[in-house]
């Protein structure tokens, strides 16, 4: 039975050919494929960078130049005045002390929120992974399902709870809210991470007589630095960027930066100062951008894990 002759070669060379193709297949750098590939990527990249560029150039122009020129042209005369104004004298309603107040409010909200939410979730995730108790899975399931419930359904009951405990309108109230809504994803993150650590490690520590907190502090914590970094990235950007909770649970004095920014830019009174607006927008975006560019691959890991948060 022979099937060898169907794909018979066209050129039969009996001896050794020393002139034919040799080594790597030559590839032109500007092949049609490459031009299409890199061309598309560069165009798309330019599109994605455009808003950032527009923000920067607009924030460096004076108002007369903005009125005359076009938004894509680079500034003829660079001025930092809009930045100064956005930071220290821009007005929201009666207050005219700029974005700096919102910035410090955001810092005062973000730092404790990140610490509190991660502390609660990591201990909780550890308990769920290593000290399973009856009923734990039920509560955990409710928590995870809760992550998909639109916040709108829960915001008013939380208003009532905060009012009862006297935290409504305060920074601590908002910290609590961020801890509540950060809990599902963070707990999931930590639970999965601790579950993936070798069980033997945990058993060995128990045989050595370490207890719940001892194992957590001396064994689990030092070994889980990467997941803490991922959680911090996730929470810092998430909380800094929040608007809805800020506008609901704080008062004008304690508004986070995003809320204040929106009030500055979208205020109906007065003459619109687009350069100041863009400077303010850029300043607000700076913190998450810095976190993003520094964290690189860890950020990707964080959003892959935290994407469920929506």
């Amino acid at each position: 039975m022979s099937m060898a002759n169907i794909a018979a070669p066209t050129i039969a060379v009996s001896g050794r050919d020393s002139t034919g193709p040799y080594g790597p297949k030559p590839r032109r750098m500007f092949s049609r494929r490459n031009i299409f590939l890199y061309g598309t990527l560069f165009v798309v990249a330019a599109y994605y960078l455009l808003p950032l560029y527009v923000m920067v150039v607009t924030s460096l122009k004076g108002m007369p130049e903005i009125r005359l020129g076009n938004i894509f042209s680079p500034p003829l005369e660079i001025t930092f005045e809009p930045w100064v104004k956005a930071w220290s004298t821009a007005c929201t309603g009666l207050n005219c002390d700029g974005l700096s107040r919102g910035f410090w409010n955001s810092v005062r909200i973000t730092v404790p929120s990140v610490i509190l939410s991660i502390a609660i979730a990591s201990v909780n995730g550890y308990a769920l992974a290593n000290w399973r108790f009856k009923g734990a899975d039920l509560f955990f399931t409710i928590l995870i399902v809760g992550a998909f419930i639109p916040y709108q359904v829960m915001i008013y009951p939380i208003v009532i709870v905060l009012r009862e405990i006297g935290l409504y309108g305060t920074i601590w109230g908002l910290v609590l809210v961020h801890s509540i809504f950060g809990m599902p994803i963070l707990t999931l993150l930590f639970r999965n991470y601790f579950s993936s650590m070798p069980e033997e490690l945990f058993r060995a520590a128990r045989v050595d007589g370490a207890g719940f907190w001892g194992i957590y502090l001396r064994i689990m914590l030092p070994m889980s630095l990467p997941i803490f970094v991922v959680a911090i990235i996730l929470q810092v950007t998430g909380i800094w960027n929040d608007f809805l909770f800020g506008v609901i649970y704080t008062k004008p004095d304690t508004y986070p930066m995003t809320v204040q920014l929106n009030n500055i830019v979208n205020s109906v009174q007065g003459v619109k100062e687009y350069n100041v607006n863009m400077a303010a927008t850029l300043i607000t975006g700076l913190v998450p951008l810095i976190v993003y560019f520094i964290s690189g691959k860890l950020f990707v890991r964080g959003i892959a894990a935290g994407a469920v948060k929506g």
Binding site: V13, D17, G20, G23
Partner: peptide, 17 residues
């Protein structure tokens, strides 16, 4: 995989590329 040096013949045909 692209080779760095050398040739490959199959059935007497140079198939390197």
């Amino acid at each position: 995989l692209d080779v760095s040096e050398g040739r490959i013949f199959i059935k007497g045909m140079n198939v390197t590329w």
